[in-house]
Design a protein around this nucleic acid. Structure first.
Length: 438
RNA sequence: GUGAGUGUAGCUCAAUUGGUUAGAGCACCAGGUUGUGGUCCUGGGGGUUGCGGGUUCGAUCCCCGUCAUUCACCCCA
């Protein structure tokens, strides 16, 4: 065993039965994206290291897979798509009609510790709208995410979208008298609140920010789940500033559009959603399984300043990323992943060695006619060929008997019921799919 | 990076306080079945018990190291 080369930690070997359910997820992602008017794009897996350095600083670079090419250039395997997106969009910003609605399904790499729901190589679906500051864009990307999960069989009982707003939270903290430079620490503590005992969070909060706003008041604010509650809580805590009013009305509008889209029941306000990313500027959201036993299925938000920082032209943007790992875990738990289908539609079998040439011809013709057809490479007892047909899971078997075949006729067997009928070979080849009843 | 758990066949697991040739189910292959699959019956292949060292007459079992893996912490683009 020790002599064998192992797979790299945090990567997966996609055997057919492992890949099949993931394909199912990819297909849903693509279908739903296209249905909502998004175009697929992709970029290189390798990027210059600087692309990520500029965006997020050196601390993040530590989690990158880095390499140096033969020309001495420092490269990185992409850990996310947004910088690539920003780079590509910036390069053609004047040629692209706005809003730009793009999606991709990409392999990403992050050199972090492997645990449940986190791997080092994984797939992520990204959906972004660039060039619109309107809350309709935010609502639309949320809609796309919700519809994809519905497409995969999840319901309102299974998951929920937690929506917050960076600007709103920031305005609240500012209005309460906490200086902007302390907001980072405040976010971190709010984010941690779910993991620490309440008293501990309260104690830490009081020490750091208690003079500005008591933990009880903050907690009450962070606990609001509906718009009226939000309005009331905001009014109770701080004087209305222009920022506060603007962020609150954005949130109001976002929720109104989500209601129009018919997905408001999937959504709730949760101001505790902070998102680790520094670049979010407005609404942020995360999709969670209702049990909340797993990590977020999906996370995203508005990042109006990022493109301007990376390229010359600033454009408002909003988007999300949804990974395959947590989603697979959840779909698996709920039994929503279909098992791999081994074979095709039909297997062609011969009852005698003498019809082998015909069998080859028939198989090729069926395949050309759009039927997934398989066959045994050598003549075997018909029982064995049927056993193989059963094993690969085809629904029909075409049987070539020596007498019937020379008479220009074949049998079609329905594997589920076992019934057989005889048809002219000519008819089968003229219209394979309907003759087979597929 | 930190802490804990787990490593026996492709998979899920056994193996008497340390004792003969490490077993079973599933899966796989073949036969029963030379013109008809599923069920059933029979047989077969597949293991240096993760790896290395130690204790012992003897180690899957005890000890040390190492690697892998899982979970949690940290972090999370």
């Amino acid at each position: 065993m020790s002599a064998k080369i192992q797979s790299v930690k945090g990567t997966r070997d996609f055997y057919p039965d492992v890949l099949a359910p993931i394909r199912q997820i990819f297909d849903a992602w693509r279908r739903v994206s296209i249905r909502h008017g998004f175009q697929e794009w992709d970029g290189p897996t390798l990027e210059l290291l600087d692309l990520y350095r500029e965006k997020s600083g050196d601390e993040l670079v530590g989690q990158l897979y880095r390499l140096t090419d033969s020309g001495g250039r420092e490269l990185a395997l992409r850990p996310e798509m947004t910088p690539t997106l920003a780079r590509m969009v910036a390069a053609k910003i004047n040629a692209l009609p706005k809003p730009i609605k793009w999606f991709c399904v990409a392999t990403l790499f992050r050199g972090e510790n492997v645990q449940r729901g986190r791997l080092r190589e994984f797939f992520q679906w990204n959906v972004d709208v660039i060039g619109s500051a309107d809350m309709t864009a935010d609502a639309e990307v949320i809609l796309v995410g919700v519809e994809a999960l519905r497409e995969l069989g999840l319901t309102q009982a299974d998951f929920q979208v937690h929506i917050s707003n960076r600007r709103l939270v920031q305005a609240i903290l500012s209005a309460a008298g906490i200086p902007v430079e302390s907001h980072g620490g405040a976010y971190a503590l709010m984010d941690k609140a779910g993991k620490l005992p309440r008293e501990e969070t309260a104690r830490r909060w009081s020490e750091a920010y208690g003079s500005a706003i008591s933990y009880e008041k903050l907690d009450a604010l962070m606990s609001v789940a509906t718009l009226p509650e939000l309005r009331a809580a905001v009014g109770a805590i701080a004087p209305a500033t222009a920022d506060l009013e603007s962020a609150a009305s954005d949130t109001e509008r976002l929720l109104a559009i989500l209601q129009d889209f018919g997905i408001i029941e999937y959504c709730k306000i949760n101001l505790r959603v902070v998102r680790g990313l520094a670049y979010y500027t407005g609404p942020v959201f995360e999709f969670y399984d209702r049990s909340e036993n797993e990590r977020a299925i999906c996370g995203g938000g508005r990042y109006d300043d990022l493109l301007g920082k990376l390229g010359r032209a600033g454009e408002p943007a909003v988007g999300f990323g949804m990974g395959d790992v947590v989603l697979s875990l959840i779909l698996e738990e709920k039994g929503l992943l279909k098992p791999a289908r081994k074979g095709g539609d039909v297997m062609v079998v011969d009852a005698a060695e003498s019809v082998r040439p015909t069998l080859h011809t028939v198989v090729a013709a069926l395949r050309r006619g759009g039927v997934a057809a398989d066959f045994s490479y050598a003549h075997q007892a018909i029982g064995k060929q049927l056993k193989m047909a059963d094993k690969i899971g085809v629904s029909r078997v075409v049987i070539l008997g020596d007498e019937t075949t020379s008479a220009g006729r074949v049998r079609i067997k329905d594997m589920a019921g076992g019934a057989e009928r005889e048809v002219a070979l000519e008819t089968l080849l003229a219209d394979p799919r309907s003759t087979l009843g597929l």
